[in-house]
Lab assay of single mutants.
Amino acid sequence: EWCEALHSFTAETSDDLSFKRGDRIQILERLDSDWCRGRLQDREGIFPAVFVRPCP
Protein backbone atom coordinates (compact mmCIF):
# COMPACT_ATOMS: atom_id res chain seq x y z
CA GLU A 1 0.00 0.00 0.00
CA TRP A 2 1.33 3.43 -0.98
CA CYS A 3 0.53 6.92 0.19
CA GLU A 4 1.51 10.46 -0.75
CA ALA A 5 2.72 13.04 1.77
CA LEU A 6 0.36 16.02 2.04
CA HIS A 7 2.77 17.87 4.34
CA SER A 8 6.44 17.59 5.26
CA PHE A 9 7.25 15.79 8.50
CA THR A 10 10.49 16.12 10.46
CA ALA A 11 11.48 13.21 12.69
CA GLU A 12 11.37 14.01 16.39
CA THR A 13 12.81 10.66 17.52
CA SER A 14 15.04 8.02 15.94
CA ASP A 15 11.90 5.89 15.33
CA ASP A 16 10.22 8.55 13.16
CA LEU A 17 10.34 8.72 9.35
CA SER A 18 11.07 12.17 7.92
CA PHE A 19 9.63 13.07 4.52
CA LYS A 20 8.76 16.00 2.29
CA ARG A 21 5.44 17.01 0.79
CA GLY A 22 4.80 14.97 -2.34
CA ASP A 23 6.95 11.97 -1.32
CA ARG A 24 5.48 8.53 -2.01
CA ILE A 25 5.75 6.31 1.06
CA GLN A 26 5.13 2.57 1.25
CA ILE A 27 2.91 1.78 4.24
CA LEU A 28 4.20 -1.32 6.02
CA GLU A 29 1.79 -1.29 8.97
CA ARG A 30 -1.01 0.79 10.46
CA LEU A 31 -0.14 1.00 14.15
CA ASP A 32 -3.44 2.67 15.09
CA SER A 33 -5.72 5.37 13.67
CA ASP A 34 -3.06 8.05 14.25
CA TRP A 35 0.26 6.41 13.30
CA CYS A 36 1.68 4.29 10.47
CA ARG A 37 4.99 2.54 9.91
CA GLY A 38 6.41 3.08 6.46
CA ARG A 39 9.39 2.97 4.12
CA LEU A 40 10.84 5.79 2.04
CA GLN A 41 13.80 4.78 -0.13
CA ASP A 42 16.15 2.96 2.28
CA ARG A 43 14.66 4.35 5.51
CA GLU A 44 11.86 3.00 7.71
CA GLY A 45 10.00 4.61 10.58
CA ILE A 46 6.70 5.79 11.98
CA PHE A 47 4.77 8.89 10.97
CA PRO A 48 1.40 10.57 11.64
CA ALA A 49 -1.36 9.20 9.40
CA VAL A 50 -2.92 12.67 8.96
CA PHE A 51 0.19 13.81 7.03
CA VAL A 52 -0.54 11.44 4.11
CA ARG A 53 -3.31 10.34 1.74
CA PRO A 54 -3.71 7.03 -0.08
CA CYS A 55 -2.28 6.91 -3.61
CA PRO A 56 -4.83 6.13 -6.32
Rank of each mutant, 00 (worst) to 15 (best):
R30A: 06
F9M: 06
R30T: 08
L31R: 07
G38Q: 01
I27H: 04
R53H: 08
G22V: 00
S8N: 15
F9P: 02
L17H: 00
I27A: 01
F19V: 03
T13N: 14
V50E: 15
S14H: 12
S18N: 05
W35Y: 15
D34I: 09
L28M: 10
R37Q: 04
Q26K: 03
I27G: 01
L17Q: 00
S33W: 10
L6F: 15
R53K: 14
C36N: 05
C3A: 07
D34Y: 11
L17D: 02
L28Q: 04
S8E: 12
L31P: 08
T13I: 05
D32S: 10
R43I: 05
F47H: 01
V52W: 02
D34N: 14
G38S: 00
A11P: 09
R24M: 09
Q26T: 05
T13C: 11
H7K: 14
E44K: 01
F9Q: 06
R30V: 11
F19P: 03
R37N: 02
S14D: 13
F51L: 14
S14Q: 14
C55E: 12
R30P: 04
I25A: 00
G38K: 01
R43Q: 12
R30Y: 14
L40I: 15
F19W: 01
T13L: 06
F9Y: 15
E29D: 10
S18H: 06
E12D: 09
R37W: 06
Q26W: 08
L28F: 13
D23V: 02
R39G: 01
R24L: 11
D15V: 13
Q41C: 11
R37S: 03
E29F: 05
R43E: 10
S33P: 11
D34T: 15
F51H: 12
E44C: 11
E12C: 12
D42R: 09
K20A: 09
F9L: 08
A49W: 12
R53S: 08
Q41D: 15
C55K: 07
Q26N: 03
A11C: 05
F19R: 01
A49K: 05
L31N: 06
F51I: 13
C3T: 05
L40G: 04
I46G: 07
I25D: 03
A11V: 02
G45P: 00
I46Q: 08
S14A: 14
L6G: 07
V50S: 14
R43S: 08
A11K: 04
E1V: 15
L6V: 08
V52Y: 04
T13F: 08
R24V: 12
E44V: 12
F47K: 08
R53Q: 14
V50L: 09
E44I: 13
S14V: 12
S33E: 14
V52E: 03
W2K: 03
E4G: 00
